[in-house]
Nucleic acid binder design. Structure first.
Lengths: 198, 198
DNA sequence: ACCTGAACACCGTTCAAGT
DNA sequence: ACCTGAACACCGTTCAAGT
């Protein structure tokens, strides 16, 4: 209740930031435009100037989520050593970390219900996150660590596997202490095929 | 507006059935207890006798969703021929079909927010769906089509991959005409390793 | 045992009015 | 250009009362 970090002119950013925090700490159900306005110290009609309706805010959150996911994946790759399997593993681990830390946000990012309008921006943000994986695939193929093949197809498969593991974890269908093993299995299978699991 | 198919005594089943339809046709946002009560021809307080609150209804929907998913996977396996790769492919195709037909329901099934109470029943239903995949893995290992290895770990990986593909499709991040290829890639990679993608 | 109906607090959205 | 504040329709939840 001290000074507002956004005295003015930044209402849109303030709403998004607080919304992301609420989403993380209390879930989508508790995310209300009126409460966000209250926390920002403006009237309940004010957010309308920046977001046409609640869904527009959710779309913007999802877009920002993909941007941040892409950045975190990129960081993980860059921080990993030169060993290719370690780079893959670090990427997958970063993905799962994001999924655990921002489960509700990830749900929102993959929620089917998105506006046609924002859908373009959302799709672009998702593509930029996917580009990290794509780069990794091309790098692996160039270095001979991965078989040749359409990088997009191979990358989509890796992307899907990571998202699937994230979903199982977020849903609580797999115990958290099994996650690391599952990620390792996924990367091993991806690189070396079924015999990696034997 | 004709006769109610549930004159009485089946309110719980009627609510669940209508809720699943609304979820499919209009999405989670449009699912309201009051509207369900209206469609069932009862007062808005009546559902409370069968579901403590809205979340309890959603939990029940998710549980029923896993039960149906399991049944549809089982049917797909049984309807497929004896060729093992075809059986795997049919299972994955059935999963994606479910995801496309009931995207909002699948979202609900994997939504983190589930009650402790219902969580047991939900987990059991999910386990029964997973059992179909587990059987398939054990069958593949016994027949020599799959490498040996903890069937649970191998099965989880396949489960995650299917869920990941489903998520990408539901989110609209991959065009529907690429789905079949992606499923084929996933199964090929799962059975034969990376060289299947070259 | 199951349902009704009034009540309460809250929400998203709209819009005329202010600065 | 941006925000206010009253208004409207709708919702989830509670609870005393009915049968």
């Amino acid at each position: 209740m001290a000074d507002r970090p956004y005295p003015h002119g930044n209402l849109r950013a303030a709403l998004l930031e607080q919304a992301e925090r609420t989403l993380r700490e209390q879930g989508l159900d508790q995310l209300s435009l009126r409460e966000l306005a209250r926390q920002a110290g403006v009237s309940h009609g004010a957010p309308r100037r920046h977001f046409a309706d609640r869904q527009a805010l959710l779309d913007a959150l999802a877009e920002a989520g993909f941007a941040r996911l892409g950045a975190e994946l990129r960081e993980a790759v860059d921080a990993a050593g030169s060993d290719y399997e370690a780079r893959l593993r670090a990427t997958a681990a970063a993905y799962v970390r994001f999924a655990v830390h921002d489960a509700a946000l990830l749900e929102l990012m993959f929620a089917g219900k998105h506006r046609e309008q924002q859908c373009g921006a959302l799709h672009d943000a998702a593509d930029r996150a996917f580009a990290v994986i794509l780069d990794l695939i091309e790098q692996g193929q160039a270095g001979g660590m991965l078989e040749r093949g359409d990088p997009e197809r191979v990358g989509l498969l890796l992307f899907a596997t990571m998202q699937g593991i994230a979903a199982l974890v977020s849903a609580g269908l797999v115990d958290t202490d099994l996650v690391d093993g599952l990620v390792a299995d996924a990367i091993g299978q991806f690189l070396h095929g079924p015999r990696a699991l034997a």
